[in-house]
Design a binder for these strands. Structure first.
Lengths: 124, 124
DNA sequence: CACTATACCTCGTAGCACAAGGTATATCAA
DNA sequence: TTGATATACCTTGTGCTACGAGGTATAGTG
């Protein structure tokens, strides 16, 4: 069935692993509440997830850059106390992307929930 | 800080991506209910997740083999209608692994839930 | 003056999930 | 008979994500 290749072209294009994009989702979500800078986002993610998820700067910064390049975020450099911060703000495009990713996540999450089980509540 | 390398040894050992291991979790969970064979598991995952998650044979079989090698599963070949099936059964070790992965998943899932939002309920 | 915290960044790599393809048998239809 | 479809197993190569490590620079503290 190699002939019904998705994108056409040179071949060999794989779909992103089904569980990926969570870092992106978290970033977009946080930035939907207020504008923040990278280092702050790193700390914030650990905080809001109750230490459950801890993403390093090596994960955050590249994602931030990608999102900006894609037009989902707008960056603004600002100097505070002699330190340069890069603040990110969600654009309309980013908002849409957030909604899409959010939906995808919910689908997956509820799928897994269903598989993991009835959770053995008190039965009727 | 390269000196506080986790396992010691040759260097360069990375942690598994924080969201991985879900295929494994699903397989273990299904096999905790009853013994099944590979091809059946492929279909089953699509079913129980309500089409939300669809893992191909290229994902399932290798994971199955790994789990068996690790002693979490016990395999048994059986011939049905002239077709050879490899049935997998959960071992005690597999049961423990399932519980561990299940716990980890819950931690992560609730972390993400928390981040994604209070869901804007009626506030006090 | 060293150490820690803040704040940005990039590079190399490990590991995972993926598509594609390959083997073989059974069933059904043309 | 031939071909297609479904069952049932498998492995190989690769794309991509997330990861750790490391690098720069400034500010504050002991």
């Amino acid at each position: 069935m190699a002939f019904l290749n998705r994108g056409a072209g040179t071949m060999g294009q794989t779909n992103p692993p089904f569980m990926s994009g969570v870092p992106e989702l978290l970033l977009l979500r946080l930035l939907a509440q207020r504008e923040m800078y990278g280092y702050e986002l790193v700390k914030s993610i650990r905080l809001v997830t109750g230490e459950a998820i801890s993403l390093g700067e090596g994960v955050i910064y590249p994602v931030l850059h990608n999102l900006e390049r894609g037009g989902a975020l707008k960056a603004k450099r600002r100097s505070v106390d002699g330190r340069t911060r890069v603040y990110y703000r969600l654009t309309a495009k980013g908002r849409k992307r957030l909604d899409r990713l959010h939906g995808e996540w919910q689908r997956i999450e509820s799928g897994i929930s269903a598989a993991l089980g009835p959770v053995n509540h008190v039965s009727t």
